[in-house]
């Protein structure tokens, strides 16, 4: 009818739902949605930007492999103790299966990767915790590998740098996990007394026993923006003191305000800043006036 021509076209009352086949046309992983600002971006570009969101600067989780690639000079990393694996000292049901599953998923053998490498040409010993493996929790292997990395730094007389990312002690290894806090701290003290330089970079999350041992024992304690850092869990504190906590409680920025950190450094500036710190601590540290 003629009058139909002048009426506004009715808005569709249904949303377009892509068909199953259309969905599969976009292979998984091409796009990434930022969990913070919900914006969608190309994964490749995000990775190129060290997994820092272009829009809100949210620092996406980095696994150990990505971290090493982003931080060390290319091809400089030499891993040590890569095939050390956990036992089941408490005979905890399903523990071994869970470990195997995570090994399969992450292609690493435990929640920390250790070794040596160079940054701006300067040799360091490094330990990178990986929160994609059992939430980065610390059991006997994590404690032992970190301790051996510290001993390696001591042996080579090079700085020790650790990236922490951990929910804390691993429950399935009970008190042995707790003792790893002491083991790593005792090793750090020996290294420190021998003049070794320790830099700790806390990434999201660094809590519990890891926060209460090596993570807090750097000559320089640094953190990535927005990282959750603390000893006790937020919920436990809220239940204990029966009041709500501020939103920024236990964030890197909160800790900086409380005087617990030297600096909060965006991931994109991290390598340069660490290089600068290292260059102030040149090996030997013996300053000599240049003869003119």
């Amino acid at each position: 009818m003629l009058k139909d021509i002048f009426t506004k076209t009715k808005k569709k009352k249904y949303a377009t739902i892509p068909s199953e086949t259309a969905k599969q046309d976009v292979p998984e992983g091409i796009m990434t949605k930022c969990p913070n600002c919900k914006k969608i971006m190309y994964t490749k570009e995000l990775v190129k930007n060290l997994k820092v969101c272009f829009h809100c600067h949210y620092h996406h989780t980095m696994n150990s492999k990505e971290r090493l690639a982003s931080f060390l000079d290319a091809n400089s990393f030499e891993e040590i103790n890569a095939n050390m694996i956990s036992e089941n000292p408490l005979n905890f049901p399903d523990y071994i299966e869970k470990l195997e599953k995570d090994r399969e998923k992450t292609k690493i053998n435990e929640a920390v990767v250790t070794g040596t490498g160079t940054i701006g040409g300067q040799k360091i010993a490094v330990a990178v915790m990986d929160s994609t493996f059992r939430m980065g929790s610390m059991g006997s292997v994590v404690g032992e590998k970190i301790t051996r990395a510290i001993e390696k730094a001591d042996e080579l007389r090079v700085p020790f740098i650790i990236f922490t990312a951990s929910g804390g002690a691993r429950m399935q290894e009970g008190v042995l996990s707790l003792m790893q806090m002491a083991k790593t701290s005792v090793a750090l003290k020996r290294f420190s007394d021998n003049g070794g330089l320790i830099i700790s970079i806390m990434t999201h999350p660094t809590t519990g026993g890891v926060s209460a041992s090596f993570a807090s024992l750097g000559d320089y304690n640094l953190a990535e923006p927005g990282a959750l850092i603390g000893f006790a869990g937020r919920r436990i504190i809220e239940q204990t003191i029966r009041e709500e906590l501020p939103e920024d409680f236990q964030t890197a920025e909160f800790l900086l305000k409380c005087g617990q950190l030297d600096a909060v450094i965006p991931r994109t500036e991290l390598k340069d800043k660490i290089s600068a710190i290292l260059s102030i601590h040149q090996p030997g540290g013996d300053f000599q006036w240049q003869e003119n």
Binding site: S64, K65, L68, F77, E79, A82, N83, M84, I85, S86, E87, P89, R103, K107, I108, N109, V113, G139, S140, V141, G143, E144, T147, E173, L176, M179, Q180, A182, K183, V186, A187, R190
Partner: peptide, 19 residues
């Protein structure tokens, strides 16, 4: 040092799987 160094249980895989 040795007391705490000795606490913990671990073993080694035969094949090397590294980063």
């Amino acid at each position: 040092y040795n007391k705490f160094k000795s606490i913990g249980e671990y073993s080694f895989l035969k094949e090397f799987i590294g980063v």
